[in-house]
């Protein structure tokens, strides 16, 4: 086991490891660190949190280093029993989290005692919640990362990309519980409201010039619906038919958030577990923060694509990263 050297595991003497035991697994819960980098040329996908915003906040609430592994909980339905005392943090979707049946406020820190039950119900606002533990959950890195990618059988709590199953244990260092200076949680008005129609910032590029002008007008002026064909690989949008002069291309490397349009004219936004190369024409790329917003949308949710200039989009992303990262 590698021990994540988080800032919050300072001191460390006499601190044991704590486990959360899975009582009920729910549809999908995976460990996610920042992602797997440097191996995409081998066909290995990036992985990592599909909502980098909520993931970063969950870690930040415990003063964890950037990249500490959190649990990404999709839909809810998960029940965990604490086998020790610890302070945990939660950010992202409101999945009706309770501790021994008492509601836990979204975007907060809370303490658990041995024997307590942490439960997630159903999506109330958003789709994915991030549970952080002091220093990050511990797991053996695979190809440099613990990001769980089921399709590739890499990473996660078992090293095989497996979803969390009943009886599994999530392990972390206990950390300090006394109230030292931990970062403040965002106030209610600063938290995202996942129920509103979402504006997704898109940096135009790639083959955008090959799309028919009417299609381009429609793409940026008509609402889109999130389809139920949506997962960690990508999210399909349904709406106006987009026509492109190019139907398929020689496969090339695909970045996070690429908006590809296959011959059926309905875009697919490619997320963290996308294939590393692809050959459909693209309108451009959603910003990382727009990907994060999209990852919280349930099927049927209304989204709008909004063009954003590259330099402004990067500036915004840098500002976000600087809240959480030292480099």
């Amino acid at each position: 086991m590698s021990v994540a050297s988080g800032r919050s595991s300072r001191g460390g003497s006499g601190e044991g490891r704590v486990q959360l035991r899975v009582e009920q697994a729910g549809p999908l819960a995976l460990l996610q660190d920042a992602g797997r980098f440097g191996v995409r040329r081998l066909g290995v996908t990036q992985g990592g949190p599909v909502d980098i915003h909520a993931w970063a906040w969950a870690n930040h609430l415990l003063d964890n280093r950037w990249g500490a592994a959190t649990l990404e909980i999709t839909f809810g339905g998960l029940s965990l029993i604490a086998e020790g005392n610890a302070r945990l943090a939660l950010a992202g979707a409101d999945l009706e989290a309770t501790l021994d049946d008492e509601p836990i406020e979204p975007w907060s820190r809370f303490e658990v005692q041995a024997g307590q039950r942490l439960r997630f119900g159903a999506p109330k606002d958003g789709l994915r919640a991030y549970l952080a533990a002091p220093g990050g959950f511990l797991a053996e890195p695979v190809l440099g990362s613990v990001a769980g990618v089921t399709r590739e059988g890499l990473g996660g709590h078992d090293g095989q990309g497996g979803k969390l199953q009943k009886g599994d244990a999530l392990v972390f260092q206990q950390g300090h519980i006394e109230n030292d200076e931990l970062p403040e949680a965002p106030s209610a008005d600063k938290r995202p409201d996942y129920s509103q129609p979402t504006r997704l910032a898109l940096v135009p590029g790639a083959q955008i010039a090959d799309f028919e002008s009417r299609s381009l007008f429609a793409a940026f002026n008509h609402p889109w619906q999130v389809d139920d064909r949506a997962d960690r690989m990508g999210v399909r949008l349904t709406g106006p038919l987009l026509k492109c002069a190019v139907s398929s291309m020689i496969s090339e490397g695909i970045g996070l958030g690429a908006v590809q349009v296959p011959p059926d004219g309905q875009p697919i936004v490619l997320l963290n577990d996308r294939q590393t190369i692809g050959g459909y024409p693209r309108l451009g790329t959603l910003t990382p923060l727009a990907c994060a917003q999209l990852a919280q949308c349930l099927p049927g949710h209304e989204v709008h694509l909004q063009a954003q200039a590259l330099s402004a989009a990067q500036e915004e992303y840098r500002d976000f990263l600087r809240l959480f990262r030292a480099d």
């Binding site: 020689i250 496969s251 090339e252």
Partner: peptide, 23 residues
């Protein structure tokens, strides 16, 4: 440098935005 993806006719270069602007 964050990642590189070579393919047939192209190379995708993914860099750290905290270290380099797009320009």
């Amino acid at each position: 440098l964050v990642d590189l993806v070579p393919s047939y006719t192209t190379l995708l270069v993914h860099y750290n935005p905290l270290q380099l602007t797009p320009a």
